[in-house]
Design a protein around this nucleic acid. Structure first.
Lengths: 164, 164
DNA sequence: TTAAAATTGATAATGATTTTCATTATCAAT
DNA sequence: ATTGATAATGAAAATCATTATCAATTTTAA
């Protein structure tokens, strides 16, 4: 499914829930669907109003709340804060986030379901939900870092400088 | 190790880091070490000042920040918010939290380490860290719910009431 | 087209967390 | 035990993300 179809689909889900289709919501959804990393409300607001100047920050908050209740977006928890949003996982998926650029991908965590309930029963708990998130460095950022390290060592050779 | 010894140990870790040992910190640490669930700063403040009336809320915030940087406490992320703290995990442990009473226990997640890096390499990511948290109902709360369900059905029989 | 109702965005209010700052407590050196 | 440098404290004020208010606008079903 392409982005345009995806936007229509999300808008229709709003309609099904008894909500109205508005330009503000369409733009907010577009921003979310065309960005592959988690964003703060203010960031969505800033990107969105470039193409839709009337957009208000409060509307972004309200729309995110609505989309979250429809399980179309989800909050992302990170060491630096928990106020970012990204399109929601489909089923038993979990996030893998680049700590350098924020790029996020979903991976399947089906194989963990058994482990979860086993752990729970060991402590007498009835496990109903789990959160799993991986942090690391994406391919781009790994390459970038490698380039930087290389150019740095070259500099040292050429100029006789020491890093520090 | 008992609580008293544990408090001394934490206080000494503050000293090692160049911090001073104060009554406020001692009381805050005691509250954390004698409670087996995550607490908000204000909750720690309220419990602490019962025995140490001078305690200030700001000091609780500052102490938590310091203890977190020493990896003695950690922030707990929950659907309802991420402003609770609990003693930190030792090594590869993860939290299992009761969604009813907040009771928390740590379980070992060693067996997941392999899974994590495998998943990462599938997407070209170099995984450096992971978050895992389980939610469920603890034994006490399960029993409690069962009792409530029982007494409710008994009521119905005795009084002929319908639940609603 | 019309009118009811949902939505919007500007503004004000809220509440958790931080900063400020004068006072107090700690602790190594005496 | 005393001292003095300075870390730590707590009260109050400031900050900042989020939420509530409300009049104006937009959407949608009829």
């Amino acid at each position: 499914m392409n982005t345009a179809e995806n936007i229509i689909q999300w808008m229709n889900m709003l309609t099904e829930r008894g909500c109205r289709q508005t330009d503000a919501r369409r733009k907010i959804i577009e921003v979310i669907l065309t960005t592959s990393r988690a964003m703060e409300p203010f960031e969505i607001f800033e990107i969105g109003r470039k193409q839709y100047p009337g957009l208000g920050l409060v509307t972004v908050y309200r729309t995110l709340e609505k989309l979250e209740s429809l399980h179309l977006v989800q909050r992302v928890h990170q060491p630096g804060g928990c106020n970012m949003y990204i399109r929601a996982a489909s089923g038993h998926e979990h996030l893998l986030i680049c700590t350098s650029c924020g790029q996020a991908v979903y991976f399947s965590g089906d194989d963990l379901t058994q482990f979860m309930s086993t752990v729970g029963s060991q402590f007498g708990y009835q496990v109903s939900d789990h959160w799993l998130q991986l942090f690391g460095t994406c391919q781009n950022c790994q390459a970038q870092m490698q380039r930087e390290a290389l150019s740095k060592s070259t500099e040292e050779v050429e100029c006789g400088k020491k890093s520090g």
